[in-house]
Amino acid sequence: MPNSPLKPPVYRFAPSPNGALHLGHALSALLNADFASAAGGRLLLRLEDIDRARCRPEFEQAIFTDLAWLGLTFEEPVRRQSEHFSDYEAALDRLKARGLVYPAFLTRGEIRAHVAAIEAGGGTWPRDPDGAPLYPGPERTWDARQKEEAVAAADATGRPYAWRLDMGKACGTVDRPLTWRETGARPQGGTDNPESAAGAITARPEAWGDVILSRPDAPSSYHLSVTVDDALQGVTHVVRGQDLFHATAVHRLLQTLLDLPEPLYHHHRLILGPDGRKLSKSRRDTGLGALRESGLSAAHVRALLL
């Protein structure tokens, strides 16, 4: 990866303490460490712990234990997203001031019912690259007064709502093609951007629809917080799994809207389980702690992955 002649490159490993780290996390952490070492760069650890319902202190401690076992060290202090809600709120306020976000009141159940009714009648409904249906709510067409009154009423009654990016309006404010610089590989089986030059990927954030930027149970979404964090921490190189390849389009849009720097991206292969699916915390795939307890060495893990 290229190195800046002025400042050392900055890499980051950013797990969520909502379960045990697995081999996929180990690959990402090791690659970040190896790239940083080879480039004479800095290596940061960020704990993406906004989801307070699922993130737990014992999982956070396990992350430190697992990374130490792998022989990895990171700069201090570690950034915890839960300690920086004001940074994400400030970014959201900037987007609100430009009229690029709107309050969205439909619940997940209401969204599913809306889409199911259309599909039951033989129709189709657009879905994002992860397969989730795009938001169908009418709120984006409301005028400023309607939105203000709806928010005031919701705040008074405790009705939950999210803030969503008006994707069409946001994309309309960008006066140049959105791209990102990629040094990794496109996801297997994809035909992403065949017209792009090698290393230059055309970003298509519109495929994601009106993404959530803030919701009742979390003051910031992954898309917003990761974009703000990378900028505030001076991250120059983002090394992460191919499952986030397409999401980069949303991050590039937010970087442009918020006038934030663009990192260089490297999306690495995913570690798949016996069933061919990527490893997952939610399915309790074998964690690094369990591998360690079984007698596997950190050197064996490195040899297995790299």
Rank of each mutant, 00 (worst) to 15 (best):
E119C: 01
G184I: 05
H266A: 13
V228T: 06
G168M: 06
A150P: 12
L232W: 11
G19C: 07
R108I: 03
A197I: 11
Y161L: 01
L23F: 10
R127S: 07
R204K: 11
T236H: 06
A116I: 02
G209V: 01
H300P: 08
G189N: 10
S294F: 08
I271G: 09
Q255R: 13
S220Y: 01
L44F: 14
L100F: 04
G209A: 04
A117Q: 15
V301S: 14
D51E: 07
L45I: 00
G109Y: 03
D229V: 06
P274H: 10
G209R: 00
L257K: 02
F64L: 14
A298D: 10
A162Q: 08
P160Q: 04
G158F: 12
G41T: 10
G19A: 07
R283Q: 09
E75N: 08
A197W: 14
A200N: 02
S294P: 09
V235K: 05
R164Q: 01
F59Y: 15
L47P: 08
H268Y: 10
Y265P: 08
L92C: 09
G184W: 00
L178E: 06
R54M: 11
W142R: 01
E262D: 15
D143Q: 07
L47D: 11
H268W: 10
E110C: 11
A247Q: 14
R79C: 14
R127A: 05
R284A: 15
A104T: 04
L260Y: 03
A298R: 05
L100Y: 03
T256E: 15
A39D: 15
G190L: 07
A152L: 13
G121Y: 04
S221Q: 09
I111E: 05
R269M: 11
P136Q: 00
F59G: 03
Y135W: 09
K7E: 15
R252F: 06
A90S: 14
L304S: 13
A104K: 01
H223W: 04
V235S: 05
A104N: 04
A207Y: 00
D93H: 00
G122A: 08
P216Q: 05
A203P: 00
E149A: 12
I50C: 06
P138C: 10
P126K: 10
L288H: 12
P103I: 04
G209I: 02
S86H: 15
A120P: 12
I271A: 04
D285R: 02
I118R: 13
P205W: 12
R145A: 08
P138K: 12
P187K: 12
V10P: 04
L258Q: 11
T236C: 08
L304E: 13
G184D: 00
I212L: 11
G273N: 10
L254C: 05
V228G: 04
T191Y: 07
W163P: 09
A90L: 09
V239N: 00
W163V: 03
I201M: 07
L70Y: 02
S280W: 02
R108D: 04
S282G: 02
D230R: 03
E119M: 01
L70V: 01
A170V: 00
P133S: 05
W142N: 03
H22A: 03
T248A: 04
S221A: 15
L260Q: 05
E60R: 12
L31Q: 02
